[in-house]
């Protein structure tokens, strides 16, 4: 699924958690390096040329946001996923301003982490694409139309955005919080299964007339557009 030896650097001084992250990523085919201090992190980031960095915001010796600022100033463009116990909106904004690409609050599900890692590694190829196609489903971004097997499907504007999000990320695990954050631009996590209801409504529309389900549930993680069907 992942091209050989994609290197990921984990910088976290909580060694037990760092090792868990490592253990979650290795089975997915990533080569993971661990660093527990800012200075180790900096030298690893410069020498190892990782494809992605997972960085704890608060390390024992300093605020890792500075480390990322330093790397960005040096021209290092490696995507950075911050993981942090600092959950406030301000901290999140500071982290992203320092050059982070995504921000995950501790404690988090490993499934959430791996989904975000994949999302960061597969940055969208071309945002200017006007047509998206998966299996027999076709989306025209200019005309704002969706067809499955040639038959047009009527979607509400938000359903269209939701489907577009999946179509741009085929075969990729998408979590509920990613959908809330990216499709609705919501910062809160609802107490109810409202996202699942939206997905199931969308499914009913695109999988009508007995066609195989394109969007499947991934237990304990979220959803995925399964292109193989």
């Amino acid at each position: 699924m992942v091209e050989a030896a994609t290197r990921i650097l984990v910088v976290d001084d909580e060694k037990a958690l760092a090792e868990e992250i490592c253990a979650a990523l290795k089975p997915l085919g990533y080569v993971v390096r661990l660093a527990h201090t800012i200075s180790d992190g900096l030298s690893e980031a410069r020498a190892g040329e990782p494809a992605l960095m997972i960085v704890d915001r608060m390390l024992e010796d300093a605020d890792a946001a500075m480390m990322i600022e330093t790397l960005r100033a040096e021209g290092v463009k490696t995507p950075v996923l911050f993981v942090s116990g600092l959950s406030s909106v301000e901290e999140r904004i500071r982290g992203l301003k320092a050059g982070g690409d995504d921000y995950l609050v501790k404690p988090f599900a490993m499934a959430e982490l791996t989904a975000r890692v994949e999302a960061l590694l597969r940055r969208l190829d071309d945002v200017r694409t006007t047509r998206l196609r998966v299996a027999d489903l076709e989306m025209d971004l200019v005309e704002q139309t969706v067809k499955r097997g040639g038959a047009e499907i009527k979607l509400a504007p938000r359903e269209f955005k939701l489907l577009e999000y999946f179509l741009r990320r085929p075969g990729q695990i998408i979590t509920r919080s990613m959908l809330l954050q990216d499709v609705w631009q919501y910062r809160f996590i609802p107490d109810t299964n409202v996202v699942d209801v939206h997905i199931s409504n969308l499914r009913k529309k695109i999988d009508a007339s007995g066609r195989p389900a394109l969007i499947v549930n991934i237990r304990g993680a979220g959803f995925m557009l399964d292109a193989s069907r």
């Binding site: 919501y186 809160f188 109810t192 409202v194």
Partner: peptide, 17 residues
């Protein structure tokens, strides 16, 4: 806006529940 949305979502969420 984000905070207001959060407050209102709690109310609506609660009402439906």
């Amino acid at each position: 806006a984000d905070l207001m949305r959060e407050a209102l979502s709690n109310l609506i969420d609660n009402a439906i529940k």
